[in-house]
Structures are given as C-alpha cells and as structure tokens.
C-alpha cells in the first residue's frame, strides 16, 4: 500500500513537471467551459421564449436540459483527452530506462501498475473537479437534483477508470509515447462507436457488440439512474485493463 502511494506521488509529479497535466486540464477547462456556457445560454433563451409565447411548455428542469447533455459531452471530451494522460505511464519509463529501476526494486508488479493508475486517476479527478466547479454555478441560480448529479459523476469516475486501465495497458506495449497515444485513441474511438451496430443489426452478435460499447453504459448514469449492469460493465473493464497491464509487464521480462 505504502509503495503504491510513493509511486503515485512520483507519477503525479511527473505529470505536472512534464506540463502534460497543465495542458490537459487547461484544454478541458476551455472546452468544457464553452459547452457549459452554450448549454446554459440555450436554456436561458428557451425559457425566455417560453415565457413570452403561449403554447410552449416551460422547461422541465436543469438536470434534463443542462446537466445530462453536459455529462454526455464530458464523456466524449474525456475520450479524446485520456490518451494524453495514459500515453506516458509505461512508454516513458521504457524509453528512459527507469523501468529497470522499478523492476529491480523490491516492488510487486501490481504495486507499480496501481501506483501509476492511481496517479492518472488523481489527475482525472482534478479534471472532473473543473467540470464540477462550472456545474456548481447552477446551484447558485436554480435547484438541480444533486442526487442525479452525483450518480452522473459516479458514472464519469467509472468511465474514466476504465479508460485509464485500458490506456495503461496500451502504454506497456511500446516505448514511444506517440504510438501509445495513437493506439489508445483508436481503441477508445472504436469502443465508443461500437453501439452503432444497433441501428442496423438485431442479431445476438449485434447485441453483444453493442453491449461492449463503452459510452452506451454511461447514458443511464447521465440520467441519474444507477444501474447495476452498467456499473458491473465498467468494473469489469477496469479489471480487464489492469489484468492485461500486469500480463504485459510480466511478458516484458521474458521478451526484453
């Protein structure tokens, strides 16, 4: 446990020292800020018009009009930014040779993996924190349902953890960060669009493939609905990612 925390601290420091952390956080802040502003602007415009015109239904609530679409947007932005967070995890250590230090120190492979995953998770939490700062503004002027919001954030947390697990696996495959990032991005993108099959296929295979899609499982969370099957999906992906990373690290010893 202690080792995991020591490794996570170093990794986190690496994120900030290499300025990757600042870039990712700043990009997210700008993009999310824009989305947030647009969503609220549309909402305000809609409410103004509904007040002036008769026959138009008043807006239902903040959750449906702003928070849900925003959280869906976050899941997509995260998909684009995540490769930047995971690309360096192992690739950089392999390139600089510091992996030799870690692997010849009295550490278990799983401690190394969890340490890195935890650091990436903490950076991701900072990123979610930025989005939360925006959304909290809504509480100043309205009364959104905080429980639904909480479920939404739980979903984002699980989604991010799953992305990070898979991303760290890809990062063990190469010593080139660009290669790691491109591969990770490809995998994530594929996982995102897998559910398109539902629009033309109704076979069992089609359903299975659609089930694998990583973002469809997020929709209920965004609505504020906590469904066990979706939570289990994410937990399995997290486990799979960490398991594959561990296997890949083990094979490093045999291949090196």
């Amino acid at each position: 446990m202690k080792n995991i925390w020591v490794l996570a601290q170093r990794e986190l420091k690496g994120y900030f020292a290499s300025s990757i952390a600042y870039i990712v956080l700043a990009m997210f802040a700008v993009i999310f800020g824009y989305f947030f502003y647009s969503a609220t602007a549309i909402f305000v415009d809609y409410s103004m018009r509904s007040m002036m015109q008769r026959g138009m239904a008043p807006p239902v609530n903040l959750n449906d009009f702003i928070i849900r679409p925003l959280l869906m947007n976050v899941s997509v932005i995260v998909l684009f930014l995540m490769p930047m967070i995971t690309m360096r995890l192992f690739a950089e250590e392999k390139r600089s040779g510091t992996i030799e230090l870690l692997m010849t120190s009295p550490l278990r492979d799983i401690e190394i993996i969890l340490g890195k995953w935890l650091a990436a998770m903490l950076l991701y939490l900072c990123l979610l924190g930025i989005s939360a700062l925006n959304i909290l503004v809504l509480f100043l002027h309205g009364r959104p349902d905080w429980r639904a919001l909480l479920v939404g954030y739980l979903g984002l947390l699980l989604l991010g953890a799953a992305f990070l697990g898979l991303g760290s696996f890809v990062s063990t495959l190469t010593k080139n960060q660009i290669v790691a990032a491109s591969l990770t991005f490809g995998v994530f993108l594929m996982l995102w669009v897998l559910d398109w099959v539902t629009s033309y296929s109704t076979t069992t295979l089609g359903k299975v493939v659609a089930y694998l899609s990583i973002t469809t499982h997020f929709e209920p969370f965004a609505k504020g609905v906590l469904e066990l099957k979706d939570a289990i999906y994410y937990l399995s992906v997290i486990f799979l990612g960490i398991f594959l990373t561990a296997r890949s690290m083990e094979s490093l010893r045999w291949r090196a």
């Binding site: 080792n3 020591v6 490794l7 690496g14 290499s18 600089s96 040779g97 510091t98 120190s105 550490l107």
Partner: peptide, 23 residues
C-alpha cells in the same frame, strides 16, 4: 544499469528519497 535510470524532472534529493522508499 548501463545508463543510470534517472527521472530528469526530479531534484537529486527528491529522487534519492524516492528510490530509497521504493527500496
């Protein structure tokens, strides 16, 4: 190792403390 396994973004003290703790 043949090329010392260093983290360039760390200070010497900090790096040595880190390696000490993982060992």
């Amino acid at each position: 190792p043949e090329s010392p396994p260093l983290y360039p973004e760390m200070e010497v003290d900090e790096y040595l403390a880190f390696t000490g703790r993982i060992k």
